[in-house]
């Protein structure tokens, strides 16, 4: 890159970085470290899940029959699709194609909304049956004294995951605004890249939640 156009291309570099490369690498490492904390944050719930499943294997087989495998499966496919569109949004940002990047971000949000709508129907159906988290649990269809604990874990895991999806929708919406304003280019697309990392992690966690909650036999 010649010196003259690096003047404008470096406008995004904050004063304490030497160059764009250092800033980009730092942002990415920072995001990965944040994802490490996310893994361990959900990790605590997975520990609770594993401990209780090891204690009560029969409960988990029974309770999983109350979860809708079809809906869970569709949601898995929806999230994988949204990961693809997110990756494509990054790719188009790298290729200076802001328009396509914008639409791919839009598609990601659309998929996320589909995911949340399906989740909403799953939740309301359970509430209808009296399957609430904790002490509000009134469902009598599962003959096990600790049935409410399974659903507490279920609601904690999927609820926390759902909150992450909502945060992701907010972040990607913000990226769409910035993309519309032409903030990103092949030289500077760091926010798209690191939000993408976040979004893929949300997908990654669902990849484990799906078989662990819905596919128990």
């Amino acid at each position: 890159m010649s010196h003259t156009d690096s003047m404008s291309a470096n406008a995004h570099v904050q004063h304490h970085f030497v160059d764009s490369e250092q800033q980009f690498d730092s942002a990415k490492l920072g995001m990965w470290l944040f994802l490490v904390t996310e893994v361990l944050f959900f990790g605590g719930l997975f520990v609770a899940y594993i401990v209780y499943r090891a204690w009560n294997p029969e409960l988990f087989t029974l309770a999983a029959t109350q979860l809708d495998t079809v809906m869970g499966g569709i949601n898995t496919l929806v999230l994988i699709g949204s990961s693809l569109t997110m990756a494509l949004a990054i790719r188009y940002a790298q290729l200076n194609d802001a328009k396509k990047s914008f639409w791919m971000l839009g598609a990601t949000i659309a998929a996320a909304l589909v995911f949340m709508v399906i989740k909403y129907f799953e939740y309301t159906h359970k509430f209808h049956l009296g399957i609430f988290p904790g002490e509000a649990y009134t469902f009598t269809g599962i003959d096990h004294p600790k049935a409410h604990i399974f659903f507490s874990i279920y609601y904690m895991m999927t609820g926390l995951h759902g909150i992450h999806v909502l945060i992701g929708i907010g972040l990607i919406g913000w990226l769409m605004v910035k993309t519309k304003r032409g903030a990103f280019s092949a030289e500077y697309y760091t926010p798209v890249e690191i939000t993408g990392l976040y979004w893929h992690l949300v997908d990654l966690i669902w990849i484990f939640l799906f078989p662990l909650l819905y596919l128990i036999d």
Binding site: D25, K28, L29, W32, L33, L35, V36, V39, L40, G43, G44, F46, V47, I50
Partner: peptide, 19 residues
């Protein structure tokens, strides 16, 4: 960069240790 992979693997290792 390899450091990012190391970070992710570290989280997995410590999760497995916790379990």
């Amino acid at each position: 960069k390899k450091i990012n992979t190391i970070a992710l693997m570290l989280s997995v290792v410590f999760f497995v240790l916790m379990v």
